[in-house]
């Protein structure tokens, strides 16, 4: 079994699933009906991307693995998503900013992943890029609106910026399997995305009249299975039926 390839694809899948799961928590509780629909749509896109990646991972894992066994029967230590994906939704500002940071990263990542020598990954990247381009536009517009809106929205997005910024360093800090995947031609070396990411993010923050934070100490570990306390709760909820009724068909 090609463990490195498997880990790399699981990492991509876990990012999409966990962020999608978080966004889905908004469904029915959004601040405006149209935006409730938009965030649910983004959640659905994430789930769709996750399913494509998990299906691809399952063929490598073999041994009867399926998209569902990979999503529902691995524990916290096995999940390889970035910490940013699992932090709580907080208020609308925090959700928006998290999405913006993530979409800017996924946009650059998927753009390059289209050149993967793994045909399936290239195809998933191409399809997902269309979705992510919209997520990036949508979240950028909201960051600007909130930064340049009212005093309250500005304070809130400022707080979100302070809270989330330390989680952004991990996005472009490659794990071992990412470096190997890149050198084998099927993955992307995310360190090469860093300056582009910073530039795109800075230009939107500036338009939102927000100061770009200094890059200080950054949290990391998610890609290696060292998570925040939040992921355990996400999985406890998400995996409950699969765990309580092992082997059942749903």
């Amino acid at each position: 079994m090609d463990t490195i390839r498997l880990n790399y694809i699981l990492h991509l899948a876990d990012n999409a699933l966990i962020l999608g799961h978080r966004n889905s928590e908004w469904c029915g509780h959004g601040p405006v009906l149209e935006q409730d629909i938009a965030i649910s749509n983004i959640a659905l896109d994430g789930l769709g991307q996750a399913r494509n990646f998990y299906q691809s991972a399952a063929t490598i894992a073999g041994n009867g693995a399926t998209e569902d066994s990979l999503a529902y029967l691995r524990d916290v230590i096995d999940f390889k998503n970035c910490l940013l994906a699992e932090v709580p939704n907080g208020d609308w500002a925090q959700t928006i900013l998290r999405q913006f940071f993530f979409s800017a990263y996924q946009y650059l990542l998927y753009t390059k992943l289209q050149q993967s020598n793994d045909g399936q990954l290239a195809a998933i990247a191409e399809k997902s890029l269309k979705e992510v381009s919209y997520h990036l536009r949508w979240s950028s517009e909201w960051v600007i609106r909130l930064g340049d809106g009212t005093e309250e929205s500005r304070t809130r997005i400022g707080n979100a910026l302070e809270f989330l910024w330390p989680y952004t360093g991990e996005l472009c800090l490659p794990a071992g399997y990412e470096l190997d995947a890149a050198s084998n031609g099927y993955g992307v070396d995310v360190s090469s995305l860093q300056s582009d990411w910073h530039q795109r993010v800075s230009s939107v923050l500036e338009e939102a009249t927000l100061a770009v934070p200094e890059t200080g100490w950054m949290q990391s570990g998610g890609k290696q299975g060292r998570h925040t306390e939040h992921l355990g709760y996400i999985l406890a909820e998400m995996q409950y039926l699969q765990r309580a009724y092992p082997g059942a068909e749903w």
Partner: peptide, 18 residues
């Protein structure tokens, strides 16, 4: 939505509520 038993059901339910 957050407790749906598999990825297919989760997507269908989310789409339905949407």
């Amino acid at each position: 939505i957050t407790r749906a038993p598999n990825l297919r059901r989760k997507s269908i339910l989310l789409a339905k509520v949407q």
